[in-house]
């Protein structure tokens, strides 16, 4: 256990060395938040209620989505694992007496923790300063929001771990990443709240794992009954189930991969 805590600490320190990138991330996420919010405000000007969302709900979801970009890495970056499989560096990782899933989880949580403090908080603060957001008064709801956020990070990791793991079979996952980093924001309710999509499409996207990344945490914050099971608890269970399933799949595939692995390069 200590080794994973230490790896977590190393990852936090590692990301703290990328100061300019962190600052640039906050600026980009905030500016796109302002643009998206204004587009949605124009839309809601024409139709004040869409499937239970009003303008404030929509703008709030925009800033939830912008704030979690860093920790859940919905636009990337891929895990370093991906590049290490491509170059064969993964050989060194496999020599460590640690479980690969836990090792990569620990380092990604370190990255996410740093990102939460230095990207999520400032970005959300910009949203709060610029717009009126729908924020809950009930402290219990904030606890649920924190849990939903943590589960989103976990699902975000599990998905990216699987994308990277595909490299053991595909040799190069740059294509996989190009596609998923384009589709994930759409499926997650990041590009637009899933509420705004036609019912049939939204119905499908709501059961896919990507919904755990933005749509579910946003609806838990907003207290919507469109959540899985119609409640906050249902939303959290939905996220937890996806996290468990994807991490388990990751563990099984890791065992497979390392048994039939082709480590590239001499």
């Amino acid at each position: 256990m200590r080794v994973y805590l230490t790896a977590f600490g190393c990852a936090v320190r590692r990301y703290s060395t990328y100061r300019a990138a962190t600052f640039a991330g906050v600026v980009t996420n905030s500016v796109f938040g302002l643009i998206n919010a204004m587009v949605l405000l124009a839309l809601f000007e024409a139709r004040p209620q869409i499937n239970g969302y009003d303008a404030t709900d929509a703008v709030t979801q925009v800033f939830v989505a912008q704030a979690v970009i860093g920790p859940i890495a919905i636009f990337g970056p891929p895990l370093d694992l991906s590049e290490r499989i491509r170059t064969g560096e993964v050989a060194v990782d496999l020599l460590r007496p640690v479980h690969p899933v836990l090792w990569w989880l620990a380092t990604d949580l370190g990255r996410a923790a740093f990102s939460t403090v230095f990207r999520s908080v400032p970005t959300f603060a910009v949203g709060m300063a610029a717009f009126e957001l729908a924020l809950p008064a009930d402290p219990l709801r904030w606890v649920a929001v924190a849990a939903a956020f943590a589960l989103a990070v976990l699902v975000g990791f599990a998905l990216r771990y699987l994308y990277a793991l595909a490299g053991f079979w595909l040799m190069d996952t740059r294509g996989v990443h190009a596609v998923v980093f384009l589709l994930a924001p759409f499926c997650a309710g990041h590009l637009l709240p899933l509420t705004l999509f036609p019912e049939a499409l939204a119905g499908v996207l709501r059961v896919l794992p990507w919904a755990s990344l933005v749509q579910v945490p946003a609806e838990i914050l907003l207290g919507k009954d469109s959540l899985p099971g119609g409640s906050t608890l249902g939303g959290l269970c939905f996220q937890a189930a996806w996290a468990a399933a994807l991490l388990a799949l990751g563990a099984v595939l890791t065992a497979r991969a390392t048994r039939r692995v082709v480590v590239q390069g001499g």
Partner: peptide
């Protein structure tokens, strides 16, 4: 041709990690 050390961190940090690893 490969390294087990953390690229962005002081050498000392990578060496400290091996203590817990082993």
């Amino acid at each position: 041709q490969r390294t087990t050390l953390w690229w962005d961190l002081p050498l000392r940090d990578s060496l400290a990690l091996t203590r817990h690893m082993y």
